[in-house]
Design a protein around this nucleic acid. Structure first.
Length: 139
DNA sequence: GCCAACGTTGGC
DNA sequence: GCCAACGTTGGC
């Protein structure tokens, strides 16, 4: 199992909206970046990820799960762009802010801290555990 | 709202 | 295939 982080501006698509989709999940469409797309292509069913609110909040708010493998992005005719579906698993008890990630030495290598602009990122197992700990939930 | 960083596009 | 121009992201 691998771990990931999905970024979304809550104005466009928020954690609450994601939760409202329930187990059916939602297509993570709109990614137009090769690195982010390649990350989604590498995902497997059941992989876990964090849901991060950019701009507003700047914090990791919940845990999601990949529930459909990469498939063509329904929002474009351009065959280059693919995306997975994800569904909400559970919220963090305490959101983990970007500030906290920057401060915690165990998270110094997180892509979130070092490559701000990548919208779908890999997260290591260790980082996943640390963020869960900071967020007050079991991994 | 600004602007730095960075990815993509397109002319040559 | 290079690189300048442009657009977008996202923290501040």
């Amino acid at each position: 199992m691998r771990y990931w982080l999905f970024k979304s501006e809550p104005d466009a698509w928020s954690w609450d909206q994601q939760v409202a989709r329930g187990d059916a999940g939602e297509e993570w469409h709109g990614v137009r970046n090769y690195q982010a797309r390649n990350n989604m292509r590498a995902m497997e069913l059941g992989d876990r990820g964090f849901f991060y609110h950019s701009n507003i909040g700047k914090e990791i708010v919940g845990i999601v799960e990949v529930c459909a493998l990469a498939h063509p992005d329904s929002t474009t005719e351009d065959a280059r762009w693919e995306c997975v579906d994800i569904r909400a698993v559970k919220p963090l008890k305490t959101p983990v802010t970007l500030e906290m990630c920057k401060t915690d030495p165990r998270l110094a290598d997180m892509v979130l801290v070092n490559n701000m602009r990548l919208s779908v990122q890999p997260v290591t197992e260790d980082e996943f555990r640390v963020v869960c700990e900071l967020g007050g939930v079991a991994p």
